[in-house]
């Protein structure tokens, strides 16, 4: 299938074992579903396996790829609405903390808001909340560390407006 069958990089397993939880975490923040996040992670590692990304840049590359791929899934309408329900039943998101703040309906708003954000903002937001440092986000997105804060701030502000607008419309 691939034009380069067999050309899977030798360090794939090592990188996979080190980075898989983070990559799934990035995708889960976007999609709100562990199953879907794991599908995205598989897709991303498959691409990585055929790439020549330097091992030292792997985590950043994989995180950005996971964010983009997950956002593509959001935008493509390929997702199943039922997955959202499953997520709300505790499939992935811990019911105790987040649920007091964000209801299932709001989760949908979060996904919708993420899909509407300018891509760079959405990716920066998700990476920052996935635990990447400002320097890592900056390197991964080719931003200056100073503008990472600005980009994340704008994204969070837009997210808040989206969620508040929704709350006040009820």
């Amino acid at each position: 299938m691939s034009t380069r069958p067999g050309a899977v990089r030798a360090d794939l397993e090592e990188v996979f074992r080190a980075a898989y939880p983070r990559v799934v975490g990035v995708a889960a923040r976007v999609l709100g579903s562990r199953d879907e996040a794991e599908d995205v992670a598989q897709e991303v590692f498959l691409s990585f396996g055929h790439s020549s990304v330097p091992a030292g840049e792997a985590t950043g590359w994989l995180s950005v790829a996971a964010a983009h791929t997950a956002l593509n899934h959001l935008r493509s309408g390929r997702r199943r609405a039922t997955r959202e329900q499953v997520a709300g039943d505790g499939d992935v998101l811990a019911p105790d903390v987040a649920d007091t703040v964000v209801t299932l309906d709001e989760r949908r708003r979060v996904r919708a808001a993420l899909a509407r954000l300018p891509r760079k903002q959405a990716v920066a937001l998700v990476l920052r909340h996935s635990g990447l440092s400002y320097a890592e986000v900056a390197a991964a997105l080719e931003l200056s560390p100073g503008s990472v804060g600005t980009t994340v701030r704008r994204a969070e502000s837009a997210l808040r407006e989206e969620l508040t607008r929704h709350a006040s419309s009820h």
């Binding site: 794939l12 397993e13 996979f16 074992r17 898989y20 939880p21 799934v24 975490g25 889960a28 923040r29 709100g32 562990r34 996040a37 794991e38 992670a41 598989q42 590692f45 498959l46 396996g49 992935v92 998101l93 811990a94 903390v97 987040a98 703040v101 964000v102 709001e106 989760r107 979060v110 937001l125 998700v126 909340h129 701030r153 994204a155 969070e156 502000s157 997210l159 808040r160 969620l163």
Partner: peptide
């Protein structure tokens, strides 16, 4: 900024602990 960051943190909360072995098996 703190308030928005906290809200975004809650909205994007996703504490997953994927099974690395199962993931590698699949890949």
């Amino acid at each position: 900024a703190q308030a928005d960051a906290a809200l975004a943190g809650a909205a994007l909360d996703a504490r997953v602990s994927p099974d690395v072995d199962a993931g590698w098996h699949r890949l």
